[in-house]
């Protein structure tokens, strides 16, 4: 009864948030990582998930993209609740998302072009030539033009990250999830990646959910955020990071946002 009500898709209006997280609790076995997470990602947001190392950011991302079942609570996309949906419905919801993993996670047995082509050839009816050209375009967008036929083992860690980003964008998703996109990049590349994200939001109108602890990025691109506190194992604040810095009184968050100065 309840589930059917939940998943009944209220016709998405302009105001329907991209993702709503309600009372989410995540755990590995009996070990609770985070409890009672409650936040909303609006369409077009660049939403930052921040928090200290090991607080559960990657785990939260895994729950949001359907890889790990939460212990309690709901993740509601525009089409309905992710974890209450049938597997096919869940696949359909997730088809509109793209993910950049912390380690890049390129398929090591395929070239960069094949990595990007794989979802395209599965979910579109494009010709081989079109797919190849799309793959080249996506690689060029992340500054890897000419690397189509390289294997992931033949390029640097930072390049793997960027290729992973190109693959995440393969199906022109509405929501992109990034796990620490700038970790392992030099400051200039990290800055370029921020620019790229802003540009992509303008041009694709996509929503971004970004895990990062790069303060420069947080303030440069984020317009909404959630802060996960390791000590209390729950979120302590949500909102525009610049405003949080100006107004929040939570000592842990201030400590984080001021690089431990306060």
């Amino acid at each position: 009864m309840d589930a059917s009500q939940n998943s009944a898709p209220a016709a998405p209006t302009a105001e329907t948030p991209a993702i709503r997280v309600e009372n989410l609790t995540m755990s590995y076995g009996d070990f609770v990582i985070m409890r009672d997470l409650d936040f909303t990602v609006q369409r077009g947001d660049i939403f930052i998930i921040m928090g200290g190392s090991g607080c559960g950011k990657s785990t939260l991302l895994r729950v949001l993209v359907g890889l790990k079942e939460p212990a309690a609570g709901r993740v509601v996309y525009r089409e309905g609740s992710l974890w209450d949906a049938e597997p096919e419905k869940r696949d359909q919801i997730l088809r509109r998302t793209g993910i950049l993993y912390q380690s890049g996670a390129l398929f090591s047995s395929m070239t960069l072009a094949e990595n990007i082509s794989l979802p395209l050839s599965q979910y579109t009816r494009l010709s081989r030539k079109d797919i190849r050209e799309l793959a080249s375009l996506k690689l060029a967008l992340v500054g890897l033009a000419g690397f189509e036929d390289f294997y992931p083992s033949e390029i640097s860690g930072g390049m793997c990250k960027r290729a992973g980003l190109a693959r995440a964008m393969a199906l022109d998703p509405d929501i992109l999830f990034f796990d620490e996109p700038s970790a392992g990049l030099d400051p200039v590349s990290a800055h370029l990646l921020d620019e790229l994200i802003l540009e992509l939001r303008e041009s694709l109108g996509a929503t971004f959910v970004v895990v990062t602890h790069e303060l420069a990025s947080i303030f440069a691109i984020g317009n909404n955020s959630v802060f996960l506190n390791v000590d209390t194992r729950t979120m302590t604040a949500s909102g525009d990071p610049k405003e949080l810095l100006a107004h929040s009184t939570d000592p842990n968050l201030r400590h984080f946002l001021t690089r431990g100065q306060e």
Partner: peptide
């Protein structure tokens, strides 16, 4: 196993494979 470590299997799964 290495693909598991490398998150490649997760990536496959989220592409719906």
């Amino acid at each position: 196993g290495t693909m598991q470590v490398n998150e490649e299997i997760d990536a496959l799964r989220t592409f719906g494979f």
